[in-house]
Protein backbone atom coordinates (compact mmCIF):
# COMPACT_ATOMS: atom_id res chain seq x y z
CA UNK A 1 0.00 0.00 0.00
CA UNK A 2 1.15 3.55 -0.76
CA UNK A 3 0.10 6.08 1.88
CA UNK A 4 -0.37 9.72 0.91
CA UNK A 5 -0.90 12.53 3.44
CA UNK A 6 -1.51 16.29 3.19
CA UNK A 7 -1.43 16.95 6.96
CA UNK A 8 -4.31 18.13 9.10
CA UNK A 9 -4.41 21.86 8.43
CA UNK A 10 -4.79 22.84 4.78
CA UNK A 11 -5.96 21.34 1.46
CA UNK A 12 -3.30 20.30 -1.05
CA UNK A 13 -5.14 19.26 -4.22
CA UNK A 14 -2.10 19.85 -6.47
CA UNK A 15 -0.23 17.01 -4.76
CA UNK A 16 -3.28 14.70 -4.69
CA UNK A 17 -3.84 15.33 -8.41
CA UNK A 18 -0.17 14.67 -9.18
CA UNK A 19 -0.29 11.37 -7.24
CA UNK A 20 -3.61 10.44 -8.88
CA UNK A 21 -2.18 11.06 -12.36
CA UNK A 22 1.01 9.15 -11.63
CA UNK A 23 -0.83 6.28 -9.86
CA UNK A 24 -1.24 4.07 -12.99
CA UNK A 25 2.58 3.64 -12.87
CA UNK A 26 2.23 1.86 -9.55
CA UNK A 27 1.29 -1.49 -11.10
CA UNK A 28 -1.96 -1.95 -9.22
CA UNK A 29 -0.61 -1.13 -5.76
CA UNK A 30 -3.32 0.31 -3.54
CA UNK A 31 -3.01 4.05 -2.89
CA UNK A 32 -4.70 5.52 0.21
CA UNK A 33 -4.64 9.30 0.62
CA UNK A 34 -5.49 11.29 3.74
CA UNK A 35 -6.90 14.51 2.32
CA UNK A 36 -8.25 17.79 3.69
CA UNK A 37 -10.89 20.06 2.14
CA UNK A 38 -10.40 18.45 -1.29
CA UNK A 39 -12.24 19.72 -4.37
CA UNK A 40 -10.40 17.54 -6.89
CA UNK A 41 -12.05 14.23 -7.83
CA UNK A 42 -9.42 11.48 -7.89
CA UNK A 43 -9.83 8.58 -10.32
CA UNK A 44 -7.13 6.14 -9.28
CA UNK A 45 -6.73 6.51 -5.54
CA UNK A 46 -8.78 6.01 -2.38
CA UNK A 47 -9.16 9.00 -0.04
CA UNK A 48 -9.90 9.49 3.67
CA UNK A 49 -10.87 12.84 5.19
CA UNK A 50 -9.45 12.43 8.66
CA UNK A 51 -7.17 9.99 10.41
CA UNK A 52 -6.78 10.08 14.20
CA UNK A 53 -3.14 10.47 15.31
CA UNK A 54 -3.08 6.93 16.75
CA UNK A 55 -4.28 5.41 13.44
CA UNK A 56 -1.90 7.58 11.43
CA UNK A 57 1.06 5.58 12.72
CA UNK A 58 -0.45 2.26 11.66
CA UNK A 59 -1.05 3.58 8.13
CA UNK A 60 2.57 4.71 7.96
CA UNK A 61 3.75 1.38 9.38
CA UNK A 62 1.83 -0.72 6.87
CA UNK A 63 2.75 1.44 3.86
CA UNK A 64 5.65 0.51 1.57
CA UNK A 65 6.00 4.12 0.43
CA UNK A 66 4.80 7.39 1.95
CA UNK A 67 4.12 10.46 -0.18
CA UNK A 68 3.59 13.57 1.94
CA UNK A 69 3.47 17.34 2.02
CA UNK A 70 6.69 18.62 3.59
CA UNK A 71 5.34 18.82 7.15
CA UNK A 72 7.89 18.22 9.91
CA UNK A 73 5.47 15.98 11.82
CA UNK A 74 5.25 13.47 8.98
CA UNK A 75 8.92 13.72 8.01
CA UNK A 76 9.97 12.97 11.60
CA UNK A 77 7.53 10.07 12.13
CA UNK A 78 8.45 8.44 8.83
CA UNK A 79 12.20 8.93 9.30
CA UNK A 80 11.93 7.26 12.71
CA UNK A 81 10.32 4.22 11.07
CA UNK A 82 12.89 4.13 8.24
CA UNK A 83 10.29 4.00 5.46
CA UNK A 84 10.78 5.13 1.87
CA UNK A 85 9.26 8.61 1.58
CA UNK A 86 8.85 11.31 -1.03
CA UNK A 87 7.90 14.78 0.16
CA UNK A 88 6.13 17.28 -2.06
CA UNK A 89 6.50 20.82 -0.63
CA UNK A 90 3.65 23.32 -0.65
CA UNK A 91 4.20 26.56 -2.55
CA UNK A 92 3.56 29.95 -0.98
CA UNK A 93 2.76 31.64 -4.28
CA UNK A 94 -0.08 29.16 -4.97
CA UNK A 95 -1.40 29.87 -1.45
CA UNK A 96 -0.87 26.23 -0.50
CA UNK A 97 0.55 27.52 2.75
CA UNK A 98 1.20 31.04 3.99
CA UNK A 99 4.75 31.28 2.61
CA UNK A 100 7.55 29.23 1.04
CA UNK A 101 8.74 27.69 4.32
CA UNK A 102 8.17 24.10 3.13
CA UNK A 103 10.38 24.65 0.08
CA UNK A 104 13.05 26.39 2.19
CA UNK A 105 13.03 23.55 4.73
CA UNK A 106 13.28 20.90 1.99
CA UNK A 107 16.25 22.65 0.36
CA UNK A 108 18.03 22.84 3.74
CA UNK A 109 17.14 19.28 4.79
CA UNK A 110 18.34 17.89 1.44
CA UNK A 111 21.77 19.32 2.30
CA UNK A 112 22.03 17.56 5.66
CA UNK A 113 19.93 14.38 5.18
CA UNK A 114 18.85 11.96 2.42
CA UNK A 115 15.31 13.36 2.42
CA UNK A 116 13.71 12.74 -1.00
CA UNK A 117 11.95 15.80 -2.37
CA UNK A 118 9.76 16.14 -5.49
CA UNK A 119 9.26 19.82 -6.33
CA UNK A 120 6.75 19.06 -9.13
CA UNK A 121 4.83 16.24 -10.80
CA UNK A 122 7.68 15.29 -13.17
CA UNK A 123 10.05 14.84 -10.22
CA UNK A 124 7.39 12.86 -8.35
CA UNK A 125 7.13 10.52 -11.32
CA UNK A 126 10.93 10.11 -11.42
CA UNK A 127 11.14 9.35 -7.69
CA UNK A 128 8.29 6.84 -7.94
CA UNK A 129 10.11 5.06 -10.77
CA UNK A 130 13.20 4.92 -8.55
CA UNK A 131 11.09 3.46 -5.75
CA UNK A 132 9.68 0.78 -8.09
CA UNK A 133 13.24 -0.20 -9.02
CA UNK A 134 14.11 -0.37 -5.29
CA UNK A 135 16.55 2.53 -5.71
CA UNK A 136 14.86 5.29 -3.74
CA UNK A 137 17.22 6.32 -0.91
CA UNK A 138 15.70 6.16 2.58
CA UNK A 139 16.32 9.04 4.97
CA UNK A 140 18.66 8.48 7.93
CA UNK A 141 17.00 7.10 11.04
CA UNK A 142 16.32 9.95 13.41
CA UNK A 143 16.58 9.27 17.14
CA UNK A 144 13.42 9.28 19.25
CA UNK A 145 14.30 12.61 20.83
CA UNK A 146 15.86 15.99 20.12
CA UNK A 147 19.64 16.31 19.94
CA UNK A 148 21.53 16.08 23.25
CA UNK A 149 22.81 19.62 22.67
CA UNK A 150 19.28 21.00 22.56
CA UNK A 151 18.04 18.94 25.53
CA UNK A 152 21.02 20.00 27.66
CA UNK A 153 20.61 23.63 26.73
CA UNK A 154 16.94 23.62 27.77
CA UNK A 155 17.69 21.68 30.97
CA UNK A 156 20.39 24.18 31.94
CA UNK A 157 18.13 27.10 31.19
CA UNK A 158 15.28 25.72 33.30
CA UNK A 159 17.46 24.83 36.25
CA UNK A 160 20.87 26.49 36.23
CA UNK A 161 23.59 24.43 37.92
CA UNK A 162 23.36 24.69 41.70
CA UNK A 163 27.00 25.71 42.29
CA UNK A 164 26.36 28.94 40.38
CA UNK A 165 24.01 30.21 43.05
CA UNK A 166 25.61 28.98 46.27
CA UNK A 167 27.23 31.96 47.90
CA UNK A 168 30.35 31.44 49.97
CA UNK A 169 29.69 32.80 53.48
CA UNK A 170 31.95 35.71 54.34
CA UNK A 171 33.69 35.35 57.67
Amino acid sequence: MIFVTVGSQLPFDRMIQAVDEVAPLLQGKEVIAQVFGMKYQPKNIKTLDYIAPKDFRSYVESAELIISHAGTGTILSVAQLQKPMIVFPRLGKLKETRNNHQIDTCVRLEQITRLQVAYDKAQLEEKIKLFLKGQLPVMEKVPAHASAQMLNSIRDFIQPQRQDIIAVPQL
Binding site: G7, T72, G73, H145, A146, L151, R155, I158
Partner: peptide, 19 residues
Protein backbone atom coordinates in the same frame (compact mmCIF):
# COMPACT_ATOMS: atom_id res chain seq x y z
CA UNK B 1 -0.76 23.09 18.35
CA UNK B 2 -1.38 19.94 16.37
CA UNK B 3 0.66 18.28 13.63
CA UNK B 4 4.37 19.07 13.45
CA UNK B 5 4.24 21.45 16.43
CA UNK B 6 3.28 18.77 18.94
CA UNK B 7 5.56 16.19 17.30
CA UNK B 8 8.47 18.58 17.86
CA UNK B 9 7.39 19.35 21.44
CA UNK B 10 7.21 15.65 22.37
CA UNK B 11 10.79 15.21 21.21
CA UNK B 12 11.92 17.62 23.96
CA UNK B 13 10.52 15.39 26.72
CA UNK B 14 13.89 14.15 28.12
CA UNK B 15 14.78 17.77 28.95
CA UNK B 16 11.98 17.71 31.55
CA UNK B 17 12.67 14.26 33.00
CA UNK B 18 13.03 15.21 36.66
CA UNK B 19 10.25 17.79 36.58
Amino acid sequence: SGGGHITELLRLQPAFEDQ
